[in-house]
């Protein structure tokens, strides 16, 4: 039995994770990636600079658009004060709360709906009915429903994240290979163990996809809600700046939203990868 040929030759670490030819890649390809990324951002700012410097007017007009350095000045000024942080913290608190509630509810309901026929019949129809309504359309109702501005905006944020999370969780559960369930039962797993050991981890990749999408949508909803009905928050700040003709503040607000959104998506990705060490890393064409 010792003479099993493949055991010796097969690598412990998969070939999918580390391509066999990784060390052989030429220097410039490996250093090239960060350089390319920095260049790409740099190019973006250069184009922006030129468009505003020449006040380009080609149907789209750049006369009123602040230049990058104006925006930078404004950002430095805002970051030196306190008021701007109050807005950022207000937005972060709402996102965090709304997203957390949506995650708990969405994953729980998604697992139940995906696995149990009874839950599907009783819980899914209202979700299907409400899902096509954009969260922004809920703003008036939400203001009527909830006593405070904070709670109504958290509600909108929750709604935005909830639907993608539920749907992805349901699909993840439904896509679980029946063979794995059979394998588990014939290894002695009962109903609870199957749910815990097969259904939840089996749906996890799809759940994480749902969380990523949900995070994006909840930012959209948060900012829209803040613009419509807020008195705090980055969305409110941005809309207010437009109203009082402080266009560089508008752009600072926008960039802040972009950066916060990007960071929160990255956070989900990192946590997701941590929870799913079995997934191979994505493979891309390196040419």
């Amino acid at each position: 039995m010792g003479a099993v040929p493949e055991a010796g030759t097969a690598p412990l670490v998969s070939t999918a994770v580390v391509p066999a030819d990784a060390p052989a890649l030429p220097q410039f390809v490996r250093w090239g990636r960060p350089v390319r990324r920095v260049l790409s951002i740099g190019l973006f700012f250069v184009i922006w600079h030129l468009l505003t410097k020449w006040d380009v007017d080609l149907y789209v007009r750049f006369q009123n658009i602040p230049a990058p350095w104006e925006v930078l000045e404004e950002a430095v000024a805002l970051l030196a004060g306190r008021a701007f942080y109050v807005h950022i913290l207000a937005s972060l608190e709402r996102i965090w709360l709304g997203f957390a509630i949506a995650t708990v509810l969405g994953v729980m309901l998604g697992l139940l709906i995906g696995w149990f026929r009874f839950a599907e019949d009783t819980l899914f129809p209202p979700i299907e009915l409400l899902r096509p309504i954009p969260a922004v359309a809920w703003v008036p109702l939400s203001i009527m429903l909830w006593p405070t501005e904070r709670s109504s905006i958290v509600f909108i944020t929750t709604l935005g994240a909830f639907f993608p999370i539920v749907l992805n969780t349901v699909h993840g559960v439904e896509a679980i290979d029946r063979q794995l369930v059979r394998a588990a039962t014939s290894l002695g797993a009962g109903r609870a163990a199957i749910f815990r050991e097969v259904v939840i981890p089996g749906a996890l990749p799809s759940i994480v996809t749902g969380l990523s999408v949900g995070m994006g949508v909840s930012w959209i909803c948060l900012i829209s809600a803040e613009m419509i009905s807020g008195q705090f928050g980055v969305g409110y700040f941005t809309w207010l700046a437009y109203g009082i003709v402080k266009y560089s503040q508008v752009v600072v607000g926008m960039l802040t939203i972009g950066i916060l959104g990007m960071l929160s998506s990255a956070l989900i990705r990192v946590i997701g990868a941590r929870c799913m060490p079995w997934l191979p890393r994505r493979v891309k064409d390196e040419a």
Binding site: D177, Q179, L180, R182, A183, A184, E197, P201, L204, W278
Partner: peptide, 8 residues
Amino acid sequence: HHSLFPWK
């Protein structure tokens, strides 16, 4: 084939 738990 494919009946091991991929996450374990």
